[in-house]
Amino acid sequence: MLAFLIGEAFRNLRRGGRVAASAVLLITLSLAALGAFWVLSLNIGSAVEQWRDRLRVVVYLREEPPAGEVEGLLKKIEGVGGIQRLRYVSKAEALQTLRRQLGGKVSEVEQLPTNPLPPSVEVTPAPEASTPEGTRALIQRLSALAEVEEVQGGTAWVEWLAQLQGLLQLIGLALGGVLALAAILTATTATTLVLHARREEMEIMRLVGASEMVIRLPLFLQGLAQGLVGAGLAVGALYGAYRLALPTLEPLLSFTLGLSRAAFFSPIEVALLLGGGGLLGALGGLAAKGERPA
């Protein structure tokens, strides 16, 4: 029975001709648009996570605490809350870092009469304090400490990146949604045409006692097949474009966002896209209107 139903579904696809092909094409376009924004958003999302993880707030101290009081000071700073970890940077360590950074120009540092660099504490905010509001509140709390001269740090540009990611997701969903609706309508039209072409067969099927499930299932399978083919083409096209753009894209991502590699969909995400395509087509198949018995 299943073989018969699948056979009928493919017979329907052949009969659907150009309209069935249009439905496949629209499903491909809608999922390719959705997928393109999705993959872009995935990469920006990775950059946001990476940069959030690297986020530091630097607390400059008024004066260098004696060695025995460093531990106590760090505990006091940690006590303001919203801190994942912190590290004390003495004046000497700051100068060493500066020497390393200056490289060949180190002699200019040697000429300084005293070490002008302030001691500091590098603070990594806790994940819940990594938002713009969280970081602002943390900076305020840290600034209120008597030992603190100045606090530097912020998440503004990381948040801008996060907003861009949200915007891309929204555009992808909106564009994909409109195209998906068009795909469903085309799949419905393709199935309705097949229903019209098959009305004699369906009349005979109903006359001899075929159940509605047997009559409608090939239409559902036809839609499903259109959807799966469309989604497969979309994933293939996206992967082709990704491989093609990779040599140009990776240095650009590394330079602008600090990402070491451009990511593509995981197998689960590919399965989700294929499932989405199948669902679009199947909905089109189910929505088709045919003559019903009395």
Binding site: E200, E201, E203, I204, R206, L207, V208, G209, A210, S211, E212, P293
Partner: peptide
């Protein structure tokens, strides 16, 4: 009931003036 119509039609054969072959 509509869902039982197929069962009735399996018990009944019908032929028409027009053969209605596919």
């Amino acid at each position: 009931r509509r869902s039982r119509i197929p069962q009735l039609r399996r018990a009944v054969g019908v032929v028409f003036q027009d053969a209605k072959l596919l």
